[in-house]
Simulated scan of single mutants.
Amino acid sequence: MTSSAPPPVDRTLRAILSIIFSVLCFSVLNAISKTLSQTFPVIEVIWGRYIFAFIFMLALFLPRSGMNLFRWHNVPSQIVRGLLLFFSSFLYFHGIAYLPLATAASISLTSPLVVTALSSKFLGEAVGPRRWAACCVGFIGALIVVRPGHANFEMHSLLIVGSTLCSSLYQLFSRRYGQTERPDASATMATIVGTVVATPLLPFEWVTPTLGWHWLLFVGMGVAAGVGHYFLTIAYSQAPAAVVAPFNYMQLLGAALLGYLVFQDIPDFWTWVGAAVIVSSGLYLGHIERQRYRALMARK
Rank of each mutant, 00 (worst) to 15 (best):
R81D: 07
I16E: 02
L252P: 01
F231Q: 05
S65H: 07
S157D: 00
P240Q: 13
A5G: 04
Y177F: 14
V273W: 03
V219N: 10
T208E: 10
T103D: 14
F204V: 02
Q291D: 09
N68V: 13
A59D: 10
T164K: 07
M155P: 00
L83F: 15
V145W: 02
E181Y: 11
Q38T: 06
S174P: 01
S186G: 15
V146I: 07
M155T: 03
F52R: 04
R131L: 02
S108D: 08
M1F: 12
A5C: 04
C136T: 05
A239G: 08
F153E: 00
R176F: 11
R299M: 10
L83T: 13
E205A: 14
W72P: 02
G226K: 05
G254S: 09
M57L: 15
V197P: 00
A295H: 14
R71H: 15
G124I: 04
G226V: 10
V114M: 12
W270C: 01
I96K: 00
A245D: 02
T164H: 08
G220Y: 09
P183W: 07
A298K: 15
S157H: 02
W272S: 01
G162M: 08
R49W: 12
V80M: 15
R292A: 10
P267F: 03
T188N: 12
S280Y: 07
V9N: 07
Y230I: 07
V223I: 15
V219R: 05
L91E: 03
T191I: 11
L165H: 13
V273N: 00
A198L: 06
I51E: 09
G66W: 14
G128S: 09
A134R: 02
M297W: 12
G220L: 07
I43V: 10
I107D: 03
K300F: 10
Q78Y: 06
